[in-house]
Design a protein around this nucleic acid. Structure first.
Lengths: 206, 206, 206, 206
DNA sequence: TATGAATGAGAATTCATTCAT
DNA sequence: GATGAATGAATTCTCATTCAT
């Protein structure tokens, strides 16, 4: 059992512990990407990490905790990557383009991460909290997109359309990217990103 | 001995056998929709169908085969529903609209089916062939869409865009529908369908 | 998974199922008696019963259920043995004597059963419900003894003493019997029973 | 290397070592009393003591040794408490009363200790030697009681009864006290002690 | 055809104990 | 003396699949 600080909740982690957790998370991502969530047992993950299965439980009290950490880690990494691009967009069209192109490029650069979180998100087994978190995260993203579209409509930059439908479709199209890039590894990523942004630029503009 | 239900042998099925298979498939769909793929064990499915677990194996040599049959059955049902609407479209825009609206309405009318196939498609456990088949089916659908778009561009009805990106996005947006309808049960389906079609009409038109 | 009838709760058991359950309960009693509760794993119990460990889970959904069934089975057997003796006691002293002597003789005849339930009752692991049930059963027994003593006092047959203390002590003394008989296998059981009854006859009589 | 803490070697313990052992024993008692023997892992005990799990093994070569030390410590504490009361008993009845009342009051004053040793005594896991020692200790106590009763009978102060049965029953009734006090926290301890002593005074007197 | 008892190969999880630091 | 990361064996439980009936 891990010395989880019951009171405050967080338990100050040592350097070595943080490193192990990172290593385990990385091994989990790779394993899921390679053999799929359902076959990604602790034994398999541990083999890849070169540790004993028990050590995973030592660092992550439950399988759920590990999976949630994978989610958090990947989303965090993605957020950092996207926020860099998002700065300084001069129009609603440009802002959406930044989001879409940023996401596509992130997918191209981190395929395993994307596969992992998508599989965890749709896994039924020992991923309840991770899935819940992902759902909430998704809801937040949708709300932000809706808000952006609504603003654009209010100032007259965007045509009148159902902002919810648009937001859902944009997100769906972005999330289809990893599978597409995996299916067709020769895809010209920059072009794909540009075309996807073009598509929705036409869809939102008057 | 069992009926050989593999590819080559094919084995002419009796009426009662066909009926049982249909019953089992239906019970599988309901079970997955209700408790999720991971918990949909043979015992659970058999309970719902009112039969013994052994009988499932008798009719479907492997779990995979059952799941693949679920996929085939649902897609077949969906194809029949869509082809009815698709007839007599007078433009590429109208044809796409027929597909999109048909799909959305199908989702609203058959939620369990959609949940089932989406869970099977993203399950790694004992769904290899089903997933492979779904992937191929997806590829066929994409190709058809691409072809349609290309024709529209060639005759000058549609603007120049990357037909692959468009096809992937259309499919992704459609497949996001079931989750959206589940999350927001009060959605006005007809309006959602119309708006989604509008979106892509703007995206493809010059 | 076992076809546990969720609605009514009970699930009509077949003859063969009942037989297996009985066999597993018997093997559990023997195993606990021999190597102790904590070492009585499913593997050990199954070995003794000559079945596979999985079969135990098949018949008893949780370890707890098995342990509770052991409790119920033993108490039921004991009740049948005691009620035979209890009939026709002509005084409060005689009634208590019947209980005490009956219990002691049962201990002598079924040592393994007694060891098993005592270990389960004091086990912390996967015996929550069984322990709870035993506690309640104990409480009921104590209440019955108290009631009997109170009546005897009211009619003037018994001296005035704290009925609770007496009930607790009688029960404790009886439950100490199995360990004593185990420690000293040469004990003259009939004499032991008689002496124990004598002891409490002196204790309760004026 | 560790301090040899086995029988023969014995190893003169330093002050700090003695202090640590005492601290660990105390933490063990508290932990078992609070969460039960089965859940009282080294990690839990160490948390309560504010030390690392490894340190427990450092001071107690095996888990068994720790549990035995708990037994020894509690019994020692109890012996000191009882011997104070036992001085100056002027009759066999008075001597027995001193023992019984002393024990009951000790139970009321040190509930955690009693819970701990009773759980250890009935635990099968890693408590073999502790249990063995407790059994022997019990045997010694029984022998002393028997001896006392025999003397009383020889001088004619006590009636003729089976001294073994009486000793076993007295001990059993005493050992039932902690559970009773736990079940009924409002019990008047002094009264309970007096009544229990009364009970056996009647049982042994002519 | 159909049953359902039985198997056996995993799965996650727990934890005393070890050992490099 | 003390730490705490790491191990590895053991545990219960799940379930597709088999097979005697």
């Amino acid at each position: 059992m891990q010395p989880e600080n019951e009171s405050s909740g967080q338990h100050q982690r040592s350097f070595i512990e943080e490193a192990r957790r990172g290593q385990i998370v990385a091994a989990t991502i790779e394993t899921i990407a390679e053999i799929g969530y359902a076959k990604a047992s602790f034994v398999r993950i541990a083999q890849r990490a070169g540790i004993s299965p028990g050590l995973i439980t030592y660092h992550f009290a439950k399988r759920e905790e590990l999976m949630k950490q994978v989610m958090l880690t990947v989303h965090d990494s993605m957020d950092r990557a996207l926020s860099a691009r998002g700065e300084g967009a001069v129009s609603y069209q440009a802002a959406l383009r930044a989001i879409i192109e940023g996401f596509v490029h992130y997918c191209a650069d981190h395929p395993a991460e994307l596969i992992a979180i998508s599989q965890i998100a749709s896994a039924a087994r020992d991923a309840e909290t991770a899935r819940t978190w992902a759902t909430e995260q998704n809801a937040r993203t949708l709300t932000e997109l809706e808000e952006m579209f609504r603003e654009g409509q209010d100032v007259g930059d965007l045509r009148r359309f159902d902002v919810r439908v648009m937001a859902v479709s944009v997100l769906a199209a972005m999330e289809a990217t990893p599978a597409e890039l995996m299916t067709r590894p020769d895809t010209d990523v920059a072009r794909y990103a540009r075309e996807l942004a073009d598509l929705f630029e036409h869809a939102i503009s008057a």
